[in-house]
Nucleic acid binder design. Structure first.
Lengths: 265, 265
DNA sequence: CTTACGAAG
DNA sequence: CTTCGTAAG
């Protein structure tokens, strides 16, 4: 059995001030993928940098205070990788990967983009390069008889059921037709599986991100953009998915909620 | 009787979040001089921008988020003035002045400086120009039979009794020999009076500013830099000076404390 | 609305 | 240590 959690912490220093460290102490997950760490190792609070019982791999962005991903694992990884072989993105704190004995786990923070800007162009360049990487990754692991799961903040809601206000967001970054089609391609043609959607059924939610603006959280005006994207063999083993929507504002340490999946065997 | 308070609010927006508005509601002062407002009128919370029963004069800096002074008066001023006729400093949010029937009140935020830098040069240029203004102001008002008081954050501690750690600050901006001599000149030669010092006696304090760094407030490692500098006739009428050191951290809305003087007649 | 950086105090 | 502006989300 393997339990994997993905959580965009939106600044691990702010999150730690608000209770992230005790969440980490309490979790029963075997692997935790983090995004938007927004700190270098020397800036990360000790209680989470060298957290007892975990092997950690941190990949900060070259650009201070931005992005940054990590993977924490109770078992020692057999391989560690920062980036995915991209000239442009490997120092941008957007991807790390570890190998465990029978599964490869990636932590992804896809650029959020902003419709009609240079940042949206960058997001699309990332999507193109990363899709090629995912195709190769699947082939390599398939030949080795291994499974793969890429967890993280994909910054794309796939279907109308993946965000509360889909009608008003059709022209906004995160729900653009080309972004949605990119995920469709990954699922239907490359053969990856959106694990939480499969477990939850084709009904709205479960959302994992609520903007800090307005009353998005209280109105549950959320988006499901924190995904577990796995190879079919691993997806078959998934039996539970939980989104830790902390209903008490006191328990919230990020604008995203942790998304946890348990894989049997 | 005239009660005048001077208070460096260190950002009126932050101060308002921390209780400045109720301090203003509760004060019995007739005139309140503010410094480091750090906001334009459209950014100032309504509850203090158009506070009931006060005539207000705001002078923001051209440079957003910096400096900014104001005078609030229960009586309608007979004249309002922004700046002191300085090409360099009149749009820097460092001086405003109002005339009441028998007294002129200025609110001053003197540049803080930083030893050995361009900002210290700027402070000294300000001091030079402002001293010339104060000499002229005194003459003009004296001829008109009027009194003058310039309240504000002068950013200079005059004597050793005006700051806790005078020994270690002899080479730091705010306690440099040339700055101290400038005040001495204003008092001994131009003829202005340091009202609070006169009332308090030649004993340490009362401090009105404690750095947010370290434990300055808890250790009372303060500076007396928020002054009432008046003409001798008005100084004669001063009978009480109070520094509102809010001992409960919950009541503190600035790193400076309000300094209030009551003038009789 | 919130994060982090940087300049200023 | 805190303010604010700024960029980013």
């Amino acid at each position: 059995m393997l339990t994997v959690t993905t959580a965009n912490v939106n600044g691990i220093r702010a999150a730690t001030r608000k209770g992230f460290a005790s969440w980490l102490t309490d979790t029963t997950a075997d692997v935790v993928c983090l995004q938007e760490v927004r700190a270098t190792e020397d800036q990360i609070p000790d209680e989470v940098l060298a957290v007892d019982g975990w092997h950690t791999l941190w990949a900060p962005a070259a650009d201070k205070g931005r992005a940054g991903v990590a993977v924490l694992s109770r078992h020692e990884p057999t391989r560690r990788q920062v980036g995915f072989g991209s000239q442009e993105f490997d120092t941008s704190g957007r991807y790390v990967e570890i190998e465990l004995p029978d599964v490869t786990v990636g932590s992804l923070y896809l650029p959020s983009g902003e419709t009609g800007t240079e940042r949206q162009d960058q997001k699309e360049r990332f999507m193109k390069e990363f899709a090629a990487y995912l195709i190769d990754l699947k082939h390599r692991n398939s030949q080795a008889g291994r499974e793969v799961v890429i967890c993280g903040d994909w910054n794309i809601a796939h279907q109308e059921i993946d965000l509360k206000n889909w009608k008003t967001n059709r022209k906004n970054a995160g729900f653009l037709p080309e972004e949605r089609e990119w995920l469709t391609h990954l699922y239907d043609e490359v053969g990856y599986v959106d694990v939480v959607r499969r477990l939850h059924g084709e009904v709205p939610g479960p959302y994992s991100w609520w903007s800090y603006r307005g009353r998005a959280f209280d109105n549950d005006a959320g988006w499901r953009i924190d995904l577990h994207v796995s190879t079919p063999g691993l997806a078959e083993r998934a039996d539970t998915a939980v989104v830790e929507r902390a209903d008490s504002h006191d328990l919230r340490w990020s604008d995203h909620a942790p998304v946890t999946v348990t894989y049997q065997h």
